[in-house]
Amino acid sequence: MARAANPGIIIDGLTGIADPDGKEGDFALSPRAVRDYRESGLSAIQVTIGEVGNARTGWDAVQEGVSIHNRIIDASPGTFVTGRTAADIRAAKVAGKIAIVMGTQDTSMVGLDLDRLGIMQGLGVRVVQLTYNLRNLSGDGSLEPANAGLSKLGRATIARIEKEKLLLDLSHGGQRTIAEAIAATTRPMTISHTGCRSLHDNPRNVWDAELKAVANKGGVVGIYWMPFLVANSKPFAADLVRHMRHAVDVCGEDHVGIGTDGVLPKTVIDAERRRKQAAENRDRVARGIAAPGEGPDVFTIIPDLDTHRRFGLLVAALEKDRWPAGRIEKVLGGNLLRLYGDVWGGVSG
């Protein structure tokens, strides 16, 4: 039990940095946030830079996002380090710090200018998601009814992503886009944050055939902690474990990870939080990027895991589901660490 309670390296393959006591314009973490991150057990997190959904300011937002996250790292050197290689993550674990891996959730900011992928690599970006929920020049997102698949530019974009030793992320893709992108790859890829569509038929989830195809090419599927796990948009830990178990059954224990798509601090649902959630949902609906299951009163939390100690609670839930310690270690971080090393190699930017 003691070994499983501290399962080596823990990586959240899609999250954001949040500080419950932070103030507008602050880059340094508050004492409470420092404590929460240190107690979380995390060794690495992947964060999103830039905007999503074919945003007009996409390229400027990428550069601004890199700058912001570099300032966050510089302001809290005792907590965060930059994650450009798998070795950076291992070193962060030894030092008791968290490596921040930067990634995008779209390629609309790249478009026809594939040289921007090289620029992003040089800036420290390590993960590039091909599409968001809408169609861009590379392919169809998960909400496009035509399900038109991958474009010629999409194939060229994937080839350039691989040339730059960036990790291709197929989250938010349409079914054909995902399937055709996997077929077009020569290197392992990820679907960093998704659920199993055979358990709940939501367009943000992925069918077994594509999950298996990712595994067959050495990739990793990250299971998210999102409303899309269940029909009523209110998942609990048992629902998360059910999706994780199914993913392992389909992909094998070497090809499943975690991408919560949430933030670490506990979500306090008060009047102000409800107001912000409703406003954000209105914006997403207006932009056409809100998926089925989202709503003005739907919060992206799993209530019985809603604490900064959530990964310890997940370990306990997986142990209750009779997962062996070695499998828990792989899924909580070992598999993503292996994938990062396979794709990035020794690239440092």
Rank of each mutant, 00 (worst) to 15 (best):
G83V: 04
D88T: 11
D88K: 11
D88N: 15
D88P: 13
R90D: 13
A91S: 15
A92F: 03
A92E: 09
K93N: 14
K93V: 01
V94I: 14
G96R: 10
K97V: 07
K97N: 12
A99V: 06
I100P: 05
M102P: 00
M102H: 01
T104R: 07
Q105E: 14
D106C: 08
T107Q: 04
M109P: 02
V110T: 13
V110A: 11
D113C: 04
R116F: 05
R116W: 06
R116N: 09
L117C: 03
L123P: 08
L123D: 12
G124P: 02
G124F: 01
V125N: 09
V125E: 05
V125P: 01
R126L: 02
V127N: 03
Q129D: 08
L130A: 03
T131L: 03
Y132W: 15
Y132G: 02
L134V: 08
R135S: 07
N136V: 04
N136W: 11
S138A: 15
G139F: 07
G141T: 12
L143N: 09
E144I: 14
N147Y: 10
L150V: 01
S151Q: 13
R155V: 13
I158T: 10
I158K: 01
A159W: 01
R160V: 07
I161A: 09
I161V: 14
E162Q: 10
K163D: 14
K163T: 11
K165H: 15
L168R: 00
D169L: 03
L170K: 09
L170Q: 00
L170D: 06
S171E: 06
H172F: 08
G173W: 00
G174T: 04
E180G: 09
A181T: 13
I182V: 15
A183M: 01
A184W: 05
T185M: 14
T185V: 12
T185E: 04
T186P: 00
R187E: 05
R187A: 03
T190D: 01
T194H: 01
T194Y: 00
T194Q: 02
T194I: 01
G195D: 08
R197Y: 04
L199Q: 04
L199H: 11
N202V: 13
N202A: 14
P203V: 00
P203T: 05
R204P: 04
N205A: 10
W207G: 12
D208K: 11
D208Q: 03
A209L: 02
A209C: 05
